[in-house]
Amino acid sequence: MFAIQAMASNSPFTEEICNLCADICERCAEECEKHEHEHCQQCADTCRNMSA
């Protein structure tokens, strides 16, 4: 939501905000991949797709 608001308002920080979101998704994916539960693997896949 924050990234969308930044884009909609033409914030000068949009790129940095989007990069931060991608970094958060990547770290989440790394953590979820450590667990064998199906829901953790699905979360990791979703996060990887979001940060790509």
Score class of each variant (00 low, 15 high):
1 M>R: 08
2 F>L: 14
2 F>V: 15
3 A>Y: 08
3 A>P: 05
3 A>R: 11
4 I>V: 13
5 Q>T: 09
5 Q>I: 13
6 A>F: 08
6 A>D: 03
7 M>A: 13
8 A>R: 07
9 S>R: 13
9 S>Y: 03
10 N>P: 00
11 S>M: 01
11 S>F: 00
12 P>L: 04
14 T>M: 07
15 E>Q: 15
15 E>A: 12
15 E>W: 10
16 E>H: 05
18 C>W: 12
18 C>T: 15
18 C>Q: 15
18 C>S: 12
20 L>D: 01
20 L>S: 04
20 L>N: 02
20 L>V: 06
20 L>T: 08
21 C>W: 03
22 A>L: 08
23 D>H: 04
24 I>W: 00
26 E>H: 13
26 E>Y: 09
28 C>M: 08
28 C>E: 01
29 A>R: 14
29 A>T: 10
30 E>Y: 07
30 E>I: 15
30 E>H: 13
31 E>H: 07
31 E>Q: 13
32 C>K: 09
32 C>A: 15
34 K>Y: 02
35 H>D: 14
35 H>K: 13
36 E>Q: 11
37 H>E: 14
37 H>A: 09
37 H>C: 08
38 E>P: 08
39 H>P: 07
40 C>Y: 02
41 Q>F: 01
43 C>F: 03
44 A>M: 05
45 D>V: 10
45 D>L: 11
45 D>S: 12
45 D>Y: 11
46 T>W: 06
46 T>L: 11
47 C>R: 00
47 C>G: 02
48 R>G: 02
49 N>L: 15
49 N>M: 14
51 S>M: 11
51 S>Y: 06
51 S>K: 12
52 A>T: 15
52 A>L: 12
52 A>Q: 15
52 A>W: 14
